[in-house]
Amino acid sequence: MDFNLMIEIAPLLVQAAWVTVDISARALFFGFFIASALVVLRTSRIRPVRWLSRAYISVVRGTPYFVQLLLIFYGGPAIGLRLDPFTCGVVVGAFNIGAYMSEAIRGAIESVDSGQNEASRSLGFGRLTTLQYIILPQAAGLMIRSVGVLAIILVKNSSLVSIISVVELTYQAQRLIGSTYKPLEVFTLSALMYIVIIYAVMGIVEFLYRRATRYTFL
């Protein structure tokens, strides 16, 4: 192992790692809104809306992320959808993770005991206020860990946007190998950086989980 080389290229990889974090964080942020919208649309009174949102989730879950990325980036311009690589990575990441996250959120909401809903309604709370004050605060604790797992998948999947030449961690690593011919050193270092990012995500998730469920520990 050429440790000197690793120290030398570290700053370049750290810079690229930041792009990985940036693209993943944005995708997660927008993905959360997409997921929330899907949860609402799936319970819509209008049948085609329900049907469309379910179809969307099925398509996203039934196709590889890699293919979705290629389709939007290379196929998009044919229908007037021209996105720069970074934006494309965020958009596809958000729509992809949003579909999975909507299932996680729905599952969490459904697993809150039905007695909670009844107790709240019997006090005079409406459907929405029950969701706001009673169901969601409890569902939050139940969904945080599964959303955390999705966030980790998102970070790992972000390596695939290298194919549309976003200069994130994996793309940068490949570039450095082109100039140094040291794949072992470069990939080891980039793998370590993924580990750091993912452990940071896990730490944040655990912190949020404890906060959201602290009432069960007190």
């Binding site: 007695g115 909670q116 009844e118 107790a119 019997s122 009432y215």
Partner: peptide, 21 residues
């Protein structure tokens, strides 16, 4: 919702809100 505000209901399984004191 308005009617229910005038009726108190107590359940077999309490159904207290666990996230609130």
């Amino acid at each position: 919702n308005h009617i229910r505000q005038n009726m108190g209901m107590v359940f077999q399984h309490f159904n207290l809100f666990p996230h609130l004191s």
